[in-house]
Amino acid sequence: MTSSADWIAGARPRTLPAAVAPVLAGTGVAAYVDQVALVDLQWWKALLALVVSLALQVGVNYANDYSDGIRGTDADRVGPMRLVGSGRATPRAVKTAAFAAFGVAALAGLVLAATTAWWLVAVGVVCVVAAWFYTGGDKPYGYLGLGEVMVFVFFGLVAVIGTTYVLTETWEWPALYAGVGVGALACAILVANNLRDIPTDTVAGKRTLAVRLSDERTRYLYAFLVLVAAAAVVAVASATTWWALLGLGFLARAAAPTRAVLSGATGPALIPVLAGTGASELAWSVLVAVPLLLA
């Protein structure tokens, strides 16, 4: 019988900062551009956006577990436990959990759409479809080297800009810049994960971007994404307040995982890089959002 601890592990809690970060960043931008006091901010909308983001992340994780499990991709893993691959849960149960998480995201999203703009429903549908077909379906795009592109778009640009929009109902350039920074670090999490899995993914026929680029170039890509995130801090600060440059403090947290990647860490040695990169993304959003909220 699958324990609650197994389900929590299967939800991959180390990846959840990637869901929290864009909402924090988007909320900070919204507070700054609307010049509203913290007590006057529509926090209930921000919380609903957080529910959407977290539920989508958990849904993606379970869907990935299910799809990779039934394909046998997770049969010989180096990383954390997978529910289907390890046999601790049936494929049907994990698939049900994935769609339950998507359902939670859909309900929260419907409330936001009803109180903001109904066209957001279409955005939500695209997000869920993209989440499922990352590793699901006959031709999952995650197996074609497009995973990083979709992570950048949905867990960076869409999540940040979307959060700002539901709070302001306007387009804001700082939200785009923040989306680039958050998206770059979200991509870095996936790059580190796929770098670790190059040997097993190659055998399983999973042509991730890391497999296509090879080990060395994937490591350079990781470092490049960290630099993009740093440049995005400067862009946000130039469009808002220079206090946002405090966001560059994320580099202190990003130093260790970047050093591990560039020094040639492999296999289990790359597992802490995932948590470190997630923490770096969360630090980026907090250190950028707080000055914007207080300004």
Rank of each mutant, 00 (worst) to 15 (best):
E281S: 12
E169S: 13
D215R: 15
V126N: 03
Q35C: 08
A108I: 11
P174F: 06
L41D: 02
T115G: 05
I70L: 00
A283H: 11
I198S: 08
A192Q: 12
R14A: 11
A252K: 11
A114T: 00
Y222I: 05
A19R: 07
A93G: 11
V153A: 14
D34K: 15
L262F: 14
L190P: 09
F102A: 08
L48V: 02
E169F: 13
V158Q: 11
V160F: 03
V52L: 07
R259G: 12
E148W: 05
C127Q: 13
D76A: 15
T163G: 04
G183H: 06
M81G: 15
G183L: 09
A231T: 03
L294K: 12
G276E: 12
D68P: 12
T116R: 11
T135C: 01
T241D: 12
K139H: 08
V290M: 07
V166Q: 01
A31E: 07
R212M: 09
A37F: 05
A130G: 04
F102V: 02
G85F: 00
V226C: 05
A265N: 01
Y134Q: 05
T90F: 00
E172F: 11
T96S: 14
L50G: 09
Q42V: 08
N193D: 00
R219L: 06
G69D: 03
G87I: 10
G249R: 14
T258Y: 07
V52E: 02
L221M: 12
T27V: 03
V151T: 04
C127E: 05
R14N: 08
L146Y: 04
G124F: 12
P91S: 03
V36E: 03
V211S: 12
A159D: 10
W7M: 02
T218M: 10
A18D: 10
A235H: 07
W243R: 13
A19H: 02
W7V: 06
L54A: 06
G162P: 06
P174L: 04
G72P: 01
D74C: 14
